[in-house]
Design a binder for these strands. Structure first.
Length: 890
RNA sequence: GCCCGCGUGGCGGAAUUGGUAGACGCAAGGGACUUAAAAUCCCUCGCCCUUACGGGAGUGCCGGUUCGACUCCGGCCGCGGGCACCA
């Protein structure tokens, strides 16, 4: 009989049955050992894409397998529901962000449910609802009380037309992506979280995460960026005269004079600054005698002070600020400086005076915003010194090259100190230590660690986010909203018809009484970065009481997440912020968990070929345009569904234009190489799609979507179904060979799933199916088919349930205990020896396991092929690897 | 520029971590069944030489270690990713 597997009926039937039985609801009170399986929750963009399908399928295999293995599994789903696309939709279509988001969630929930994931939908959450973000506000206030929140001025990208702050990726070629207006740098007072407090902790903690990809740990480590060195103070030289200050002034003949020349009294604005000098940081204190200048950032307070009375300097600073910060601009940007006319005293020799520049390559927000320049051993300093004709004294050299001149490249390699007085002859490391020791002994500097990591700015001048629960009062300052007044709810009646932040524009929302003094005050109208939302959602999944963000004891039962799965694009920010937030909660005693994600897996993208139709550009009359002798060619991207393959090539449907096949790339709208999941699900069913997602490519690598492969997946589903409907007679003898294959498959597949090597598990399942198909009817064959159904259940659950029932098994296969391999079937009693001569395979032979060495040798030497290959020679040496191979060295 | 990863048939990829390279899938070719098609089943399928039997080289390139190297070491080439004026 063997009808086709009816995926539509089976999916509907089993999804309803699972739901009715509440099969996948996690029980906090269960005595079983707990496992938390989590995939990064989606942004509700409107529809799921293949990347989601791949991500959630992998997680589902883990969750279902763990459940079958007897664990109480928490596998929840929710929505990362705040963010800009909702506001864009509001502006473009006049729909309210909340309405848009909630409609998207409803649509995507339905799509996910069609895939039959073993999710606990009772724990579903959306970050845009007050019952989520209200608790987030409470946590924010807790962190604030603990001193982990502060406010400071910070520069933002400001779009003067849309009157809004832009993220860096919204600035394209210096212009706002929407308005096209030239973006300004504005300084706004913003809220920050003190992630730098945890820099060392977050870095050191990476070592305790063996189940994270090495790559991600490295990326985080680099991002945190620990640098050890010396921080010391440069004291401004006593009044001395240096003519010719200004940009490009050549001062080389002056800076190294033993006797400082005279100069006018110090700048009055500097005096007001109360500054006798400034701090610098260096990782190369060993090269201090190679110093030839000092430089401060354009935003450095000294530069700002000097600029008040120096219009030329003010202009220079303005130019520095206008310079873009994009990678390409930075790379091509020339090193430029402005000589302030000031000098500083060399800390190791007061007779040496170094000129002070304002330089465009010194960053205010790293280290102290000021450096000493050592051109011989730092490329940037060298570029700068060459431009301004500063000396380039070498102080480190490999043995015997003390006099080798520095040309266009700074020397950053190892060597010994030269031209450095008491440091001469020391290694770089010894000299670093010696200078730090001396600085500390003499009190002008200290050994310090500096981090690349910056504090986390969480203010966003946007509507669709968590309102920051603070009230600004003229008398009391920034006052936290009392916990009893939470949540601070976003007003629904907002408009997007004018530029700016709708919260700010709202007629009444922000006007409130100060909680401290009762006077007139205004609410903070900034909202929190959406990364805050995703920094604790996994805790709320584990425990979601009404009256508090989570219950400590309940959350700790589930946490940390055993297996977290998502894209590499979140390797740094999201994962670092979540790690920080968890540690911050630990510090304030709310949760005793340091690392939120014990195991992390970053899956590859789903890709597809790209197709381009080629046309000739024509003028108004329809004649092809020519560029010289060549016609001008135009391309446009064509979606996969709009091409047809014919014997004479590939063409665009409708236009008939020839198609060029381009690179296989990440599915994207711009390249039109996306394949929507819904029609595929309709046609091939959820199980075939899930199976495809697990086949072929290793999960960390990209997976190329192809019509042929999904057909192959569909065929596999049918093959398993045929076995289930025609298992054959269970009478007669057992089939030891099949049982051996079966138990090896059980062991292998279980191990593969443990290691998330789904492609290998898939290959083994194919082998098992092949073996069962070839086997004659026997009790063993029926056993093998029943076990096969269990083994494929995490991957193709609807088919498995249907097959399970058809085979007369009771209950859900989803709840059946995971098969365990019987060790007696895992050992072979025969082995195949490979016979090599000089390492090259010549022959093989089969024999009983554990054959004595001498017997093996004798058997090998007696074989025809060996005799022929040796051609009468006696092997010089015979290497026998027991039960594996023999190598004859001739 | 710095850091990291990867190069295996027409394609996606296996290879017990130093021991028979190419499992498994896709594609392709041939055949069976069928009035026909679909579905299904059987066979072939990395390269070169050979009608065959066989033989040879082979895991990006060059060299090394080893009885034996896709695997380890050194040096190149190519592709991909992350960071980027971080002192």
């Amino acid at each position: 009989m063997s009808l086709k597997f009816d995926h539509k009926a089976a999916e509907a039937r089993w999804q309803a049955a699972w739901d009715k039985a509440q099969l996948f609801a996690a029980d906090d009170a269960s005595p079983a050992p707990k496992r938390y399986v989590l995939e990064m929750f989606p942004y509700p963009s409107g529809r799921i894409h293949m990347g989601h399908v791949r991500n959630y399928t992998m997680g589902d295999v883990i969750a279902r397998t763990r459940r079958a293995q007897g664990f109480e599994v928490l596998h929840p789903m929710g929505w990362d529901a705040f963010g800009m696309p909702a506001e864009n939709a509001a502006m473009e279509r006049g729909v309210h962000p909340g309405e848009w988001t909630r409609a998207n969630i409803a649509a995507m929930r339905g799509q996910l449910q069609r895939l039959g994931f073993a999710l606990d939908w009772s724990r579903e959450l959306a970050t845009c609802e007050p019952d989520y973000y209200g608790h987030e506000q409470a946590l924010f206030l807790d962190l604030m009380a603990a001193g982990l929140v502060f406010r400071k001025e910070s520069a933002v990208n400001w779009d003067p037309v849309d009157m809004t702050v832009l993220a860096n990726e919204q600035v394209i070629d210096g212009r706002g992506w929407r308005s096209g207006a030239v973006v300004e740098r504005r300084r706004l007072s913003q809220w920050f979280l003190k992630i730098t407090d945890f820099a060392d902790d977050l870095r050191a903690g990476l070592d305790a995460l063996p189940d994270w990809p090495e790559k991600v740990r490295l990326m985080q480590e680099n991002w945190i960026g620990k640098s050890q060195g010396l921080r010391f103070r440069f004291i401004l030289s006593p009044p001395l005269f240096r003519e010719g200050s200004g940009e490009g002034a050549s001062v080389s003949e002056r800076w190294d004079r033993a006797v400082p020349p005279e100069r006018p009294s110090p700048n009055p604005s500097l005096k007001r600054e109360g500054s006798d000098g400034f701090d610098v940081f260096t990782t190369r204190p060993d090269t201090l005698f190679g110093a030839s200048f000092a430089a401060i950032a354009a935003e450095h307070p000294i530069a700002t002070a000097l600029a008040e009375t120096n219009p030329a300097l003010a202009a220079f600073i303005a130019e520095c600020r206008a310079g873009g910060t994009s990678a390409a601009e930075v790379e091509t940007q020339e090193k430029r400086g402005y000589d302030t006319g000031l000098s500083v005293v060399h800390p190791l020799d007061p007779s040496i005076h170094l000129p002070v520049f304002v330089a465009n390559f010194v960053l205010m927000d790293y280290g102290t915003g000021a450096i000493f320049g050592c051109p011989a051993h730092d490329q940037r300093d060298l570029d700068f010194a060459r431009k301004y004709a500063l000396p380039v004294p070498r102080v480190v050299a490999p043995d015997g090259e003390a006099d080798a001149p520095i040309d266009a490249e700074a020397y950053v390699g190892p060597g010994r100190l030269v031209n450095s007085r008491f440091l001469d002859g020391m290694s770089v490391d010894d000299a670093k230590a010696a200078v730090i020791a001396r600085a500390e002994a003499e009190g002008w500097g200290t050994g310090t660690t500096v981090w690349r990591l910056r504090d986390w700015g969480v203010s966003r001048q946007r509507y669709w986010g968590t309102p920051i629960p603070v009230i600004h009062c003229a008398a009391c300052g920034a006052v936290p909203v009392p916990k009893g007044q939470l949540p601070v709810v976003l007003p629904e009646d907002v408009t997007f018809d004018r530029p700016g932040n709708p919260l700010d524009n709202h007629p009444t929302w922000k006007h409130v009484a100060c909680p401290a003094c009762g006077g007139a005050a205004v609410r903070e109208t900034d909202t929190l970065d959406t990364f805050v939302n995703s920094s604790w959602y996994f805790i709320r999944f584990a425990s979601a009481p009404l009256d508090q963000p989570f219950d400590k004891a309940v959350a700790e039962q589930w946490l940390p997440v055993g297996q977290y799965i998502g894209g590499v694009e979140h390797a740094i920010l999201h994962l670092l912020y979540a790690r920080f937030w968890t540690r911050a909660l630990q510090r304030i005693g709310r949760l005793d968990v340091a690392e939120p994600f014990a195991g992390l897996f970053t899956q590859g993208m789903v890709t597809h070929e790209t197709y381009r139709a080629v046309t000739l550009r024509t003028d108004e009359a329809g004649h092809p345009l020519m560029l010289g002798d060549e016609p001008v060619v135009e391309h446009h991207w064509v979606e996969p569904s709009a091409i047809e393959r014919r014997d004479d090539g590939i063409f665009e449907v409708g236009s008939g234009l020839p198609i060029e096949i381009g690179r296989t790339e990440k599915m994207s709208k711009s390249k039109k190489n996306t394949v929507a999941p819904e029609p595929i699900l309709e046609r091939y069913g959820a199980d075939a799609v899930r199976w495809f997602m697990l086949s072929d490519s290793p999960p960390e690598r990209d997976l190329a979507w192809s019509e042929a492969s999904i057909e192959g997946a569909w065929r596999f589903v049918q093959r398993v179904w045929r076995l289930a409907t025609e298992p054959g007679d269970a009478e007669g003898e057992a089939d030891p060979a099949l049982l051996r294959t079966l138990h090896k498959a059980i062991a292998g597949i279980t191990a593969d799933i443990d290691k998330l090597q789904f492609n290998k598990a898939v290959a083994r399942l194919y082998e098992l199916v092949n073996a069962i198909e070839r086997a004659d009817a026997s009790p063993s064959r029926v056993t093998a088919i029943v076990t096969l159904v269990q083994l494929v259940a995490p991957m193709v659950p609807h088919l498995a349930e249907e097959a399970w029932a058809t085979l007369g098994q009771t209950g859900f296969v989803a709840s059946a205990p995971w098969p365990v391999a019987d060790p007696q079937w895992l050992v072979d009693d025969t082995v195949t020896y490979a016979i090599q001569i000089n390492g090259k395979l010549k022959d093989t032979f089969e024999t009983a396991k554990g054959m004595a060495r001498v017997d093996v040798e004798a058997a090998v030497l007696a074989r025809d092929k060996v005799i022929r290959a040796l051609d009468g020679k006696t092997p010089k040496k015979v290497i026998v690897v027991p039960d594996r191979l023999v190598n004859l060295v001739a």
